[in-house]
Design a binder for these strands. Structure first.
Length: 423
RNA sequence: GACCCCAUCGUCUAGCCUGGUUAGGACACAAGCUUUUCAAGCUUGCAGCACGGGUUCAAAUCCCGUUGGGGUCGCCA
């Protein structure tokens, strides 16, 4: 049975690149009916923090990348010490102070990378490798090799930045008399200008969550970076992707992260989501913003969500589009005011407010009829009144259909805002 | 600098392995339709095999080189 692992270091949040590595490992494990191990590489006592461990686990769960086994390297120091002692006893390593260092014999090393094919190295250019540091903790490569062997990892799928670590680690496998696993080095994800960084936008998975991205969209987007399900398919769920996944079909070239495309995909997932579920996801954002309290009209909220669904690309877009429903005091930008409310429409607004206030059923159809009858009477184009009214009600020049907007705003606020528009 | 990896529209990619395609799709961009605005949706358009040599009847596809980009050279992981 195949077994893979994702081995993050809890010295920071789960990075979007790390999430992609985890995803490909996870997909490979699922596609091969194998196991997915999560190993926390917390050997650096100074920089590792529990808060980051928690965050990594939470992000993994949020993305749906559940693990079969979980290990902490900090709990395995005895094993690393034993293995280092063994190499010392066998004369394959030597001490320098308290540190244990592996002798690197000169030889040609070849790795058969599942994605890149054969890669050759000459160890003459590799210096002796530290296995155990002076403080008694193992180095990354040593702990990594000891654990991958101990945990029976069959395939090491990791970022391309580890290619040059591979020959060093193979030397450790050799010294320990262990069989090396198969390797697959994934292409890196980059930003617009080189390495993926804050410049490109969010880097931590939690940032994407805060910005209103859906885990299924992120996972979908990430798998498209370096792999394609074929058949011109872009939107694909994890389960279907697993069925088509092949590590050999993974690209070799680094990919540039596109926030535009992620947003588009996220919007696609939002548009196909039932308003009820979408509302569930938006509520935490509304609460945080203070737009709804404990008791709110759930049914009405769903209607509002439904109205904005089609134009949202992230959950937080709702906050910006629909803010006028939740706030008492509207703020209208000078430019918009100048453009749409500079001409005095107080007479029209007054009549409109009087008529809609008399409406028994304050719904889209009644509002539209009332409005259209009025503009016909006044002998003006509907659009002459539509735009000023929208601005007066929402503070925005753009938005959903005006009559839907009035209906969800409710009679009280609609009437009030019409009356106060030209005061 | 040394070693290693990579190279199809602006971006993500299909095609490459097993040479013969009008080089396909998506995002973005532009135009049109729709329309009370903005979106969404639909239609159309723009745009690519880095360059130079080979091999071959035939090269995006195979080989070599150049250029360009990336990674690694820690008692970080």
């Amino acid at each position: 049975m195949i077994k893979v692992r994702f081995a993050p270091s809890p010295t920071g949040y789960l990075h979007i690149g790390g999430a992609r590595t985890a995803l490909f490992n996870w997909m490979y494990a699922r596609a091969q009916a194998g196991k997915f191990v999560l190993r926390i590489e917390d050997t650096d006592r100074q920089r590792s923090r529990q808060e980051f461990v928690d965050e990594i686990l939470e992000s993994m769960r949020w993305l749906g990348l559940v693990w079969d086994e979980l290990y902490y390297q900090s709990a395995r120091f005895d094993i690393y010490r034993q293995q280092a002692q063994k190499l010392l006893d066998e004369g394959k390593a030597y001490k320098d102070g308290e540190a244990v260092i592996l002798k690197i014999p000169v030889q040609e090393i070849k790795i058969d990378d599942l994605i890149r094919g054969e890669i050759a190295f000459d160890t003459a250019t590799i210096k002796d490798q530290v296995l155990m540091k002076s403080d008694g903790s193992p180095t990354y490569s040593f702990a990594c090799v000891v654990d991958d062997a101990a945990m029976a990892i069959t395939h090491v799928i990791r970022g391309e930045d580890h290619i040059s670590n591979t020959p060093k680690q193979i030397m450790i496998y050799q010294a320990l008399g262990l069989k090396a696993p198969k390797f697959a080095h994934l292409p890196l994800i980059m930003g617009d200008d080189g390495r993926l960084s804050k410049r490109t936008g969010a880097v931590a998975v939690t940032d994407y969550k805060k910005e209103g991205f859906l885990p299924e969209a992120i996972v979908n987007y990430l798998m498209l970076l370096g792999w394609s399900p074929g058949g011109n398919q872009e939107k694909i769920d994890l389960a279907s992707a697993v069925k088509k996944f092949s590590i050999k079909k993974v690209n070799k070239a680094a990919a540039v992260f596109s926030m535009d495309k992620l947003k588009w995909l996220n919007g696609q997932y939002i548009k196909e989501m039932p308003a009820g579920r979408l509302t569930d996801l938006i509520i935490p954002f509304l609460k945080e913003k203070g737009y709804v309290s404990a008791d709110f009209d759930r049914e009405r909220l769903e209607k509002i969500v439904e109205l904005f669904k089609v134009r949202m690309s992230t959950l937080t877009d709702f906050l910006e589009w629909a803010d006028f429903v939740f706030v008492d005091q509207l703020t209208v930008g000078d430019e918009i005011r100048q453009q749409h409310l500079s001409r005095d429409r107080s007479k029209e607004f007054r009549i409109l407010s009087e008529r809609v206030s008399r409406l028994d059923t304050f719904d889209t159809a009644s509002l539209e009829k009332t409005f259209r009858d009025l503009v016909a009477e006044l002998g003006i184009q509907a659009s002459e009144l539509v735009h000023p009214v929208r601005v007066a009600l929402t503070g925005k020049a753009i938005g959903p259909g005006l009559f839907d907007t009035m209906a969800i705003l409710g009679k009280e606020k609609t009437v009030q805002r019409l009356r106060e528009a030209f005061l």
